[in-house]
Amino acid sequence: MSRRYRGNLAATIIMVAADVAAFILILWIVLWMLDANRANDLVEWIHDVASWLGGWAHNIFSTQSAWARTLLNYGLPAAVYLIVGHAVAGRVNRA
């Protein structure tokens, strides 16, 4: 196991959950930018999960450009999950 995921089991679970959430959000951004087939079941599932994970941030930014809106409205939650998840995991690991 890498140094990043050593320590308290609860901290590891929190960190991995934050990483997975951010990965799914970023994966959706990439799929959207590449104009992935929305009729594909996997693409639809990733979009549904990303929409659920980033639901609290939808339409925070309302730019004219669709690519910028997608990047900001899904990128912000990804960054928040990473920052907050790793901060909480660090705090739990120190406790």
Rank of each mutant, 00 (worst) to 15 (best):
T63I: 10
Q64K: 12
N73S: 07
F61G: 03
G75L: 03
A87W: 14
V92R: 05
A68D: 01
H86M: 09
N93W: 12
A89C: 08
H86L: 06
Y74I: 04
H86R: 14
I60Y: 05
V84D: 05
A57V: 06
H86C: 03
F61C: 02
N73R: 07
P77L: 04
G85D: 04
W67C: 00
G75R: 03
T63L: 14
L82Y: 13
V84Q: 10
S65H: 08
V80Q: 08
G75A: 06
A66Y: 10
V88D: 09
Y74H: 11
N73V: 02
L76H: 02
W67T: 04
Q64W: 04
N93Y: 10
S62C: 04
V88Q: 07
W56T: 00
A79I: 11
N59Y: 06
A66T: 07
A68Y: 00
G75P: 05
L82A: 15
S65T: 09
R69L: 03
F61N: 01
I83R: 07
V88A: 13
R91K: 11
Y81H: 10
A66V: 06
V84F: 12
A89K: 07
A87Y: 12
Y81S: 11
A68H: 00
A79V: 13
G90M: 02
H86V: 09
A66N: 06
H86E: 13
A57T: 14
Y81V: 12
N93P: 05
A79Y: 02
S65W: 08
N93H: 15
G75S: 04
A87T: 12
Y81C: 12
A68F: 07
L72F: 13
